[in-house]
């Protein structure tokens, strides 16, 4: 049904996630992710004629909350979790490219 996972696919996904993988890692993840996808592919062997696509196991709809403010976290606590901060903001390395 689906073509096996290619090494280029893994390299592409890694690039989207801004991950640098070594050649050995690329081989390893192609193998591992391929197995996961193959397992998902087992579904194809079942007879699903007439089964409606299901995105969620519960039949719930319209789960909402009231628009009421609740306390937020303390800023000092929040920023203490970050590797680095400056001027009460999270400091991150230089951004490559623009926001999508």
């Amino acid at each position: 049904m689906s073509s096996p996972l290619r090494r280029e696919d893994v390299a592409h996904v890694a690039r989207l996630a801004r991950l640098t993988l070594s050649d050995a890692e690329l081989d390893m993840f192609t193998e591992q992710l391929g197995q996961v996808l193959e397992h998902a592919n087992d579904m194809a062997s079942l007879d699903l004629e007439g089964v409606v696509a299901t995105a969620h196991p519960f039949g719930l709809i319209n789960v909402v909350r009231d628009d009421v403010v609740r306390p937020s976290l303390e800023r000092d606590v929040v920023l203490a979790m970050a590797p680095d901060s400056q001027d009460h903001r999270f400091a991150v390395p230089r951004i490559m490219g623009e926001s999508p």
Binding site: V69, R70, S72
Partner: peptide, 24 residues
Amino acid sequence: KTATKMFCGCANSFGSEPNTSVCP
């Protein structure tokens, strides 16, 4: 123009002090 954010109860307020309206 809601009182809170889309998925949490943090205040939806323009111009508050940075990172004071945040939660998990």
